[in-house]
Design a protein around this nucleic acid. Structure first.
Lengths: 203, 203
DNA sequence: TTATGATCTGAACCATGGTTCAAGTTCTGG
DNA sequence: CCAGAACTTGAACCATGGTTCAGATCATAA
């Protein structure tokens, strides 16, 4: 029992650290973020971070892993929530945008894979590819179902991913539109595009 | 005349350095890039960089300024090339994607504004805002012309920007599709979206 | 050829910031 | 209440890498 409790306690500590690290990473970017700063934010000494994590980049890896875990879970939920790929897409976009811009987890972490140790990077990239492939699958399923249409699903997926990830750079809680509006807007745009008519032409 | 020639020579040197710096920044990211590495790439000593630039972040600022200059020029060209906003958009997307992924200039530079000195950052952000506003204007013009349709032009602009900027993270020259195909694909997706019909519904 | 200024070099300097660790403090089981 | 493990501290250590600068080299004009 002690074992289990201890592990839970440790896990809890790790999550607390994750939250602080994630926040600082988000605000300053990985490189600009300092270990001392992370520690200070939670009112502890630097050493504590090293008791629970191997180092700064392990911290980043943990952030990314957590974030990707949530994203993958969002995909699962989406597929449970509806059979309509279009609806699934909307669900995922909401989850993705929310995941990157709010809550505990790793926002920029998802993006800065470069500054990861080779071992971690491989693992993270595997997860990431899995997520992106899942998203692409949703689109492809929509196409084969006939409710979506798309010349190049891989490209469309990446286009959407870019649009969603980019929100980190400009969206702010204080601004007009909340996260759900943002997500719905992006989704609407991804679905319907800018053109007035499908095949070129006037009003 | 000596004056002029000297200035030209200096300018040429600065551009050479820009090219090298830009390449290294693109490959490694700003923080991971080392001054020594940049110098080494052009076969000169570190000191030379400091003869022509105040420091690393001045180098980055110069990269970004150059890049944004090109982008703004693309917008001008687009507006000269056609009166049709949809065509203008296509032109800009091509220019943007090409600008970030090929040629000399600053790819990631365009994105990493955080690591800039306050003074530079302000100037760069002003340019960036001008560019993004110009892009948005194109979309808005399309809407008022009637050849485009869009619930939230600002959001659509940012969505498109995200999709374009994100290409830096995944597009590779060796892969299938060249830059123009990439740009056209993105543009197609931005215009027509994924939906089969405009207002929800089946085949 | 020589003086002068522009250009270039690269070893040395130094601030930053990630990391370590010896020493405290807290917790747990007996 | 005590021993020992778990946990926490923060000052000190040290590698990295941006920056400096005294001197070498090159270009130009007289």
């Amino acid at each position: 029992m002690v074992q289990v409790l201890d592990k839970e306690r440790v896990q809890a500590r790790r999550m607390e650290i994750l939250a602080a690290a994630s926040a600082v990473f988000r605000e300053r970017g990985f490189h600009a973020a300092g270990m001392r700063e992370i520690a200070q934010r939670m009112g502890v000494a630097v050493g504590k971070l090293y008791y629970y994590f191997a180092g700064k980049e392990a911290l980043l890896a943990f952030c990314q892993e957590d974030c990707l875990g949530r994203l993958l879970q969002v995909v699962e939920e989406a597929e449970k929530a509806s059979d309509d790929p279009a609806r699934q897409l909307a669900y995922i976009v909401r989850g993705h945008v929310r995941c990157l811009n709010s809550e505990v987890p790793g926002s920029l972490a998802h993006l800065e894979v470069e500054s990861l140790a080779a071992a971690d990077r491989a693992r993270i990239l595997r997860l990431r590819r899995r997520y992106e492939r899942a998203l692409q699958k949703v689109i492809e399923r929509g196409v084969s179902t006939g409710c979506l249409r798309c010349g190049d699903p891989a490209l469309a997926t990446r286009s959407l991913l870019g649009a969603m990830n980019w929100t980190v750079k400009w969206w702010q809680p204080e601004g007009r539109m909340n996260l759900d509006d943002l997500a719905d807007g992006l989704c609407e745009h991804a679905l319907h595009g800018l053109a007035v008519s499908r095949r070129k032409g006037g009003t």
